[in-house]
Amino acid sequence: MAKELKPGQRRVTAGSVVADLMIVAWFVFSLFPLLWMLLLALKNDADQTSTYFAFSPTFDNFVTVLSQRGQDLTSVDFGQAMWTSVLNCVGAVLVSLVVGVPAAYAAGRWKYRGSENLMFQMLSFRFAPELMVIVPLFVIYNTLGIFDTKVGMVWVLQLVTMPLVVWILRSYFQDLSPELEQAALLDGYTRIRAFLTVALPLVRPGIAASALLAFIFAWNNYVFPLILTDSAATTVTVAVTKFLGGGGQAYYNLTAAAALLGALPPLVLALTIQRYLVRGLSFGAVKA
């Protein structure tokens, strides 16, 4: 192992070939379903059940998913659902940032009574079963008239986005020497300006990472929109599942196309921010 730990010291041995084969095996398992979805999504209605790998590709399914016909099949406007998801997630992340950045800063800078409780409360949201709050929220939302609205979704998605933002950013603020802000105070800047001009720019990677990760997880959430929305504020995750039960007849190719469309934004985002993801995924517990 130690030999392999050092860069530039690689030899082709039986062991290294076996290791490479194992890696390849994993990635075949890991990537095949995605590849298969792509193939399925490119098949026409006839090919979808008659052939596995040889067919003439078509983009019709993507068009259909987003068209009136898709809406007729599933009673959900898929394009509308995607747009709703975008608005919900952007809204939820923005609210979490506005609310969470000051809280993360306070928790990262001061040891004050209740700060640890607050942080643990946040963490417990991450691990709490969603249904615990959903049933009462269902009643509350109906009372407040925010059932099946974007406002309602943005609020409930805080359960997903807030813990991420607060925990990740606290770990970034903790890593930042308080003496930098102290220097700014002595330079004559107020605490707010010291925070805005010194601390905040230095945790920009943390803000980007937590915001994008929060966006991804909010996008991927299924239970909240499943129960707290109907048709007006349906999100993409719910919309995808509607294709599965498409009125008796199976539309595998359409389902695959919808699944791909729903999976695409998180995949693209993840590949662009991969560098920062590790720390975010572990809530700052693992720093890479």
């Binding site: 003496e179 930098l180 220097a183 700014a184 105070l185 002595l186 330079d187 107020t190 605490r191």
Partner: peptide, 20 residues
């Protein structure tokens, strides 16, 4: 009195230079 109203300047042992 807040630090920014004290009119004192300080050189920190850790330098505390703004990295950006």
């Amino acid at each position: 009195v807040e630090p920014y109203h004290r009119n004192v300047a300080m050189a920190f042992e850790s330098y505390a230079l703004y990295p950006q």
